[in-house]
Simulated scan of single mutants.
Amino acid sequence: MAQIDYFFTVVSPWVYLAGDRLEQIAARHGAQVRYVALDGPALFPRTGGQVLAERHESRKAYRLQELKRWSRKLGRTLDLQPAYFPVNPAPASYAVIAAQAAGGGDLAGLVQAFPRAVWAEGRNIAEDAVVKAILAENGFDPAVADRGMFMAADVYVKNLDEAVARGVFGLPFYIVGEDRFWGQDRLEMLEDHLAGR
């Protein structure tokens, strides 16, 4: 069984736009998804990139055009100026990591729910009440975030180190063996790879 290591940040609009396409691809090809939540803003300077606030205005403008185009193409509602962005990704990321360790809910749904909350629902995923509500909405005990916080904080740091070591430089990022795919717009190529095309 192939394993897809899925590196993501809960605050990325591109992760939101990916939706559940990765899970559909994995199901079609009998692959397993390993979710690796990490601190996206911390990844960029470690791999030669820049955080959004420091990018040239032309890059920021193009990003907005691309987000508009992709949201229209995929038929997904996306607020280009969400009420709670930028937002601290750590609380929601810790919740994903703790939920993954605890089990018992819909992990894929949880991973998709946090970026959707930012980019389509106007929710503040740095607020404890919102994090717990989203955990519950996806079948997890809301208290898992509190119980697993210290473990999750440690894993969160290790996930960033793993990402850098394995050549991840943007998000979302997918790795199958030695093959790497950057961006939700490479999901078709990931499927081709799994299909041996």
Rank of each mutant, 00 (worst) to 15 (best):
Q81K: 15
Q81M: 12
A83F: 10
A83I: 10
A83W: 06
Y84M: 08
F85V: 02
P86T: 04
V87E: 06
N88G: 05
N88M: 05
P89T: 03
P89K: 08
A90W: 02
P91C: 09
P91D: 00
A92N: 12
V96F: 02
I97M: 06
I97P: 02
A98P: 02
A98K: 00
A98Y: 00
Q100W: 02
A101M: 10
A102L: 06
A102P: 03
A102I: 02
G104I: 01
G105A: 09
G105T: 04
D106H: 04
L107E: 13
L107K: 11
A108V: 08
A108F: 10
G109Q: 11
G109P: 12
G109K: 11
G109F: 08
L110G: 06
V111P: 04
A113M: 08
A113R: 14
F114P: 03
F114G: 01
P115N: 07
P115G: 06
V118W: 02
V118H: 06
W119C: 03
A120P: 06
A120H: 07
E121D: 15
G122S: 14
R123I: 09
I125W: 10
E127N: 09
D128P: 04
D128Y: 03
V130T: 13
V130K: 04
V130N: 04
V131Y: 05
V131G: 04
V131C: 09
A133H: 02
A133K: 03
I134W: 01
L135Q: 07
N138F: 01
N138K: 10
G139T: 10
F140G: 01
F140P: 01
D141W: 00
P142Y: 02
P142N: 13
P142D: 07
A143M: 06
V144Q: 00
V144A: 00
V144C: 01
D146S: 13
R147H: 08
R147N: 03
R147Q: 11
G148Q: 06
M149T: 12
M149L: 11
F150P: 00
F150V: 08
M151G: 05
M151L: 13
M151S: 09
A152T: 04
A153G: 15
A153D: 04
A153I: 00
D154T: 15
V155W: 01
V155C: 04
Y156M: 07
Y156A: 01
V157I: 14
V157G: 13
K158T: 09
K158A: 14
N159I: 07
L160V: 13
D161T: 15
D161C: 14
E162P: 08
A163E: 11
A163M: 12
R166H: 12
R166C: 07
V168Q: 12
V168W: 14
V168R: 12
G170V: 10
P172K: 13
Y174D: 05
Y174I: 05
Y174F: 15
